[in-house]
């Protein structure tokens, strides 16, 4: 009975609500298959991320979702959320905290004056990645579709890339002894699914963007807003585009 109902609804759902692309993704999920995406064309995409600071509420959903989706070891972070406090004029001492990467949310810390806001951080998937530049063996690399990935079967664990990343987005996996980092959920986006952090974000603060797709709303987003990347003076070609990023953010 339940199987019939499921099948019926699945079929209806497919044809009624979904585009054909999403149908393909759905098959992967429903079949429970963990496999490479066979119909995925790397040359059709150029992935990036947009992050709207004014929409981040510091709930920590992205941090938890990332950890669950990618089995991120406890105490390490592929994405995390920072809370900034920038005081009013005479004082210049910026205060930042990120308790457990923001995974458990942020207990309120009221200040008088100044401003407070959250900044989600993750790998910027730079197009001139300092981490890729220094990898001695080719175990971390830029893909043709604009991601920075790690080959955990090839990484020798020298940690040079961790030193080279200006954003602190890499760590050594305590069990694998290889470097580990955000993959922009390549296993999901190659099957037309959202990255886990975007899927879990309640306010639409973080959004996956495909710069090669002319219909992607990212083009509008980049055009109408003031956009900044982190540490632009590092000239890393960072592709995490922030809207409303304060100058105090490092």
């Amino acid at each position: 009975m339940s199987t019939n109902r499921r099948e019926f609804l699945t079929e209806c759902g497919k044809y009624l609500f979904l585009t054909s692309a999403a149908t393909a993704a759905l098959d992967f999920v429903i079949d429970g298959k963990a496999e490479a995406a066979p119909n995925y064309m790397m040359t059709d995409h150029w992935w990036a991320m947009t992050i709207d600071i004014e929409k981040c509420i510091g709930c920590g959903n992205c941090v938890r979702a990332c950890a669950e989706e990618n089995n991120v070891p406890v105490g390490f972070f592929r994405t995390w959320v920072e809370r900034y406090y920038v005081p009013d004029f005479p004082s210049t001492k910026v205060e930042v905290d990120s308790p457990n990467g923001g995974k458990d949310g942020f207990p309120d810390q009221p200040h008088t004056g100044g401003k407070s806001f959250f900044v989600p951080k993750m790998c910027n998937h730079c197009s001139d990645s300092p981490c890729v530049q220094v990898c001695p063996v080719g175990a971390t690399f830029e893909t043709p579709d604009g991601l920075v990935l790690v080959d955990e079967k090839y990484c020798i664990g020298c940690r040079y890339c961790v030193q080279a990343c200006p954003y602190g987005c890499r760590y050594i996996h305590p069990e694998k002894n290889t470097v580990d980092k955000c993959t922009l959920c390549y296993h999901r986006i190659s099957k037309q699914l959202e990255p886990a952090c975007c899927e879990a974000c309640p306010t639409g603060c973080r959004k996956l963007a495909d710069l090669k797709d002319p219909k992607d709303p990212v083009h509008e987003f980049l055009r109408v807003n003031s956009i900044q990347v982190l540490k632009p003076h590092m000239a890393t070609g960072a592709k995490a585009y922030y809207r409303g990023l304060d100058g105090a953010v490092r």
């Binding site: 609500f17 990935l149 993959t183 999901r188």
Partner: peptide, 30 residues
């Protein structure tokens, strides 16, 4: 495709999925 092992791309793409995605939920729970 660049200075790396091309099979690594497949390795990463084959990671298991934990979040089914909105489309999967809505297909059964319209």
């Amino acid at each position: 495709y660049g200075h790396f092992r091309p099979a690594a791309l497949e390795d990463v793409r084959a990671h298991p999925i934990h979040f089914a995605g909105r489309a999967a939920c809505e297909a059964c729970h319209p």
